[in-house]
Design a protein around this nucleic acid. Structure first.
Lengths: 381, 381
DNA sequence: GTGGCTTACTTAAAGCTTTAAGTAGCGCGA
DNA sequence: TCGCGCTACTTAAAGCTTTAAGTAAGCCAC
């Protein structure tokens, strides 16, 4: 059956057709009860123009097949598409093409400085490349860490970015980790060069004359905790800095906050062991630590030097401005996104690998030459 | 044609069928070249079990129609679904049901304290309700503010949440604003009670003896700027606080940062006009302002009291801790999400409205009784 | 006057799920 | 032996788009 022909040949046929069309049209284009106009579909457009959906599709997509459609028909189609604000249904298209241009992002918190910075990099890259993303924050809850990847896969994300989040190997889509837990088969990992970070921080402290160092480690669940601590120990040994067993504590608690750093520091002080420098797992903790030190009557940096980690935006404007090891968090997010997209577009079987990024020491106001009393003590020896 | 019957009746028919099935199966279940197993579909399951997709669908969804399916068949289906890790295709389902359980969120930045806090509330509520969301941050770029809503609608989001982002009225989906620009027809708006905010802050300052107030307004593009400034003026008049024309400046610049507050404060100081209190548009600006004041030799709060706005997480741990007007940002995000979802599920034609939330004054360490010099000057009068 | 080319489309299937409506076969009662 | 009702499913359409393959009509050439 070729409607077009019939129409050309027989006006009555045409009228019949038009009657049919308009009765259908009523069904289709009437505002729905709930008030919002239904979106126009290819078929609706086709009926309006007395063509078939296939034709419309080829024209609006400028598909190769559209070459066979004469210019005036193309214009007719394009005009109608504009007039009715036609936009292709993303889901129908995804269903057919098996592409969704959607990525899932797993992160402990979006709302703290760390997560937010990484997200910025991820977002930048993804949106620019025409991808959208779902974010889910799991607050380190194991049930959510297990469930969310499934839910994201249900929504046909094409890939996953896991920020500071443990992942199993066997996902059906490419996965890139930022600060991932160890090497996992098939997962590309963007991680900081912890060795360099430790070197930068500890050499800085050593140069300032510090010998007795306290350390606040991260929580168990954080991917960086172990690697960083190992790097610190190694570096301390190399520089013959003392790290007393009692002067190493870990952050306790799930929600990122300076309170955790404050509490950890109180433990450190309670040990009674002397220290002149403190290296914390992140800036948030450093800021809390400074408060604890001050409340205990020690001034920063005169009595104790403090080095943070991350360089979150508020570090610079803290009083005194925080000396810290900068992680290029936004860049790491960007790299993760870029790496993931290249997995998707290029040869899919790209080797999983580790991408190292270099930290940077940012010296500000919370580190200083070791205090006078300490110097005197050293001379006495 | 009833395959099942034929099978039961004639073994040869069954073999033919099985041969057909297994040849098809090969097509379907073979690992694809790109390495990842294709996801099993209803049809695949149906072929495995020699049933039709409809049956499988009803069973796995526990649809009313499944009552007619005997238990042992149900078990067979459910077992197969589990064995092959069957998960329904979200897109096919959305296409049919015309529901996507997806929301779009428009926000200037996710990565600053303000945006991140609001997002936290939004995310909490949305994920709990089974919705996912796309976030896009537009950095106040007009082209993006115009384009992103369209892109989100293309992806069939069911609603939009606009955080501090101007929106037109005519979206095809429900829209809820947080700190929206003015009243827009059809858009529900979650806004702070600016009158109360101004009252809390200025009464606090007045009680401390301050008379000469400087103000840092927000940028033009920020929705709250005007409303808050009007409220401050009204309240200042009521309390007969002076606000010299030269002691009102606006933040300049697109990227949220304490630098903007520092620069604004430098302008204030350059005017040469005296002031003993400063009310800033947000905490970030307050923190920058404190730095500028200190660099100019004025201590906070001894010489100048500073009040911020928002109560971002770092406010509490600033040194000195920041006195500020707390916006319940996470709650506002939650309310926006809740309001949007109720639009979607309840009677769709819910009246657009304004939801006011109350700020709270958080007195910390950056406000104090007006300084000695100022008191002497007052006495001299 | 028929074969073949061109033009301008159309057809049909695929992608996957859901749902109302249909039906083959069987057992039972009249 | 017909009809009814039940069981256990199946069928077909809908939701919207894309694509390869098909084709009606007209025209030209031989």
């Amino acid at each position: 059956m070729c409607r077009q022909r019939r129409r050309r040949l027989s006006p009555p046929g045409r009228w019949a057709r038009l009657w049919f069309v308009s009765s259908k049209k009523q069904n289709k284009s009437l505002p729905r009860q709930n008030g919002s106009e239904k979106k126009p579909t290819l078929r609706f457009l086709a009926e309006q123009l007395d063509l078939t959906p296939a034709t419309i599709s080829m024209v609006v997509n400028r598909a190769p097949g559209a070459k066979a459609i004469p210019k005036h028909t193309q214009r007719r189609v394009l005009d109608a598409a504009k007039r009715f604000h036609y936009r292709p249904n993303f889901f129908a298209r995804s269903l057919l093409r098996q592409r969704t241009f959607t990525i899932g992002v797993l992160i402990p918190e979006i709302s703290d400085g760390y997560g937010a910075q990484v997200m910025r990099g991820i977002e930048d890259h993804l949106l620019q490349a025409g991808y959208f993303y779902f974010v889910v924050s799991h607050h380190h809850r194991p049930d959510l860490i297990c469930e969310y990847p499934r839910l994201l896969l249900d929504r046909s994300v094409e890939g996953l970015i896991a920020v500071d989040t443990p992942m199993e190997a066997s996902m059906q889509v490419p996965v890139v980790s930022v600060s991932g837990h160890g090497r996992v088969k098939g997962i590309t990992n963007v991680v900081l060069h912890h060795g360099l970070a430790a070197k930068l921080a500890l050499e800085h402290l050593a140069t300032l004359g510090h010998r007795r160092l306290a350390v606040i480690k991260g929580q168990e669940f954080s991917s960086d905790t172990e690697a960083r601590w190992n790097a610190i120990r190694r570096e301390a040994r190399r520089l013959s800095l003392e790290i007393d067993h009692d002067l190493v504590v870990a952050l306790q608690g799930d929600t990122p906050s300076s309170h955790l750093g404050q509490e950890a520091t109180e433990k450190l002080l309670a040990s009674g062991k002397p220290f002149t420098a403190l290296f914390t797992f992140n800036d948030l903790a450093a800021i809390g630590a400074i408060r604890a030190l001050r409340l205990a009557g020690r001034s920063v940096p005169e009595d104790v030097s403090v080095i943070g980690f991350d360089d979150i935006p508020s570090a610079e404007f803290h009083n005194p401005p925080l000396t810290t090891v900068r992680q290029p968090l936004a860049t790491m997010g960007e790299m993760a996104a870029a790496s993931l997209l290249s997995c998707l577009t290029e040869n899919r079987q790209k080797r999983a690998r580790v991408i190292y990024v270099d930290p940077q020491l940012v010296v500000r106001g919370t580190t200083a030459r070791v205090g006078v009393r300490e110097i005197e003590r050293k001379r006495a020896r």
